[in-house]
Structure formats: C-alpha cells, structure tokens
C-alpha cells in the first residue's frame, strides 16, 4: 500500500504504476457533470486554487447537515467516471489536477492527458459507501451548492487513508483496457 499525500507533484505521480494500491490523505474536491461543465466553460474561480496539485473525486455524496450547520458525509461511494470523458483532459490541463478518482475507468483522451501532464486515474471501490464516508474526516467547504444541488456541488473534503487503486497511469497504461482485452480473448473462446 502506497501512502499518497495531497497536494502532490507530477514527479510523485509519475512514480505510480497501474495496479498500485494507494491510501490517500489530504484535501480533495468532488465534481460530477455540472461541475465539469463549469470547469471547462469558465475560469473556475471558486475552486482553481483548491484543485492545483490535488484530486477530483467523481462522487455524489449523501450529506447530513447538523444542527450546528456543519456537514458530514453519510455515504460517499464513487460514481461512473466515463460521463466526464468529454471534459476531463481539458480539466487536468487547465487546473493542474494530479488525479481523478472514480469508478469504471475513462477513455483515451484522459489517458493521454495523464501521460502529458503527470496525472493518474484511480478506481475507488463501488458500494463501500460506509467505509469511504468514514475516511472523509472533515467537510471543509462547499462551492456552488445552491446552483448545482447536493450531489453535483463541489465538496471540499479532507480525507484520511482513502483507499483506491491506480488503474490508469502516466505511462500510458490502462488496467481497464488490459483486462477488457484479456477477458475478450477468453470470452471469444467460450462463446464463438
């Protein structure tokens, strides 16, 4: 298990290889569809400084607001990443994002952007909502809550030992593509 602290640098990220299991500590930001559109179409004033050297988490959390006005994450599993494929390469470039965390992997443009800029894609485990929510130690801030709503807003969170696996590295390797290809060979033997 590799310990990764945020913010980080392209040099640190380039040490990671597809298949590495990591445990992430530091500040990251959630972003889904509306947030990605906003990042590409504007200068992203609200989150620009937070994203630099940090990671984006594809997550639509269930959030509880306490009587004191403080937010806590109740469930925080990853959501399907491929929906952000049209935006992600531009977001990595423009905001110097070092990692993208989600579920299911992403496409060729994102893989190329990871190679070019020294970034990675990491898979979080789908369905382990309680574990992931418990690794979110603090909700530091939320941006665009009114405009985007709870699941789509930018939640600025401090995580401790957040478990994930590097599945697309900065050396052009995608574990998703490799496994798809290998399983297809077996599939063809079994079915055709």
């Amino acid at each position: 298990m590799i310990k990764l602290t945020l913010p980080t640098t392209p040099d640190e990220i380039r040490k990671l290889k597809a298949g590495d299991e990591v445990s992430i500590t530091g500040v990251m930001v959630t972003a889904r569809d509306a947030a990605h559109k906003y990042l590409v179409e504007t200068e992203g004033e609200d989150v620009r400084d937070l994203l630099k050297g940090s990671m984006i988490y594809h997550c639509g959390p269930v959030v509880r607001k306490g009587d004191d006005g403080k937010y806590t994450f109740v469930a925080a599993g990853p959501t399907t990443s491929i929906r952000e494929e049209p935006y992600e390469a531009a977001v990595i470039d423009k905001y110097e994002v070092r990692g993208v965390i989600g579920k299911g992997g992403m496409g060729g443009d994102t893989l190329a952007a990871c190679g070019e800029h020294g970034s990675v894609y990491l898979s979080a485990i789908g369905g382990i909502a309680t574990t992931l929510a418990q690794s979110v130690k603090e909700v530091l801030d939320v941006k665009k809550l009114e405009e985007f709503g709870v699941p789509e807003a930018f939640w600025v969170i401090r995580v401790e030992n957040f478990p994930a696996v590097v599945t697309m590295d900065s050396h052009g390797v995608s574990l998703h593509d490799q496994i798809e290809k290998k399983s297809r060979e077996t599939y063809d033997k079994l079915v055709k």
Binding site: V74, A75, G77, I125, G127, T130, T131
Partner: peptide, 20 residues
C-alpha cells in the same frame, strides 16, 4: 477484504451496506 470491512462497519452502525 475492503468489501467485508465495509459490511462490518455498516452492521455496527446500522447504516446501509451500499448507498443504493
């Protein structure tokens, strides 16, 4: 192993195993 850990935490806290 992480799946089972999550199940333990869910049953301890009586919260859903998965958010869906």
């Amino acid at each position: 192993t992480l799946l089972l850990e999550n199940c333990d935490k869910a049953s301890d806290a009586s919260t859903p195993i998965c958010q869906d």
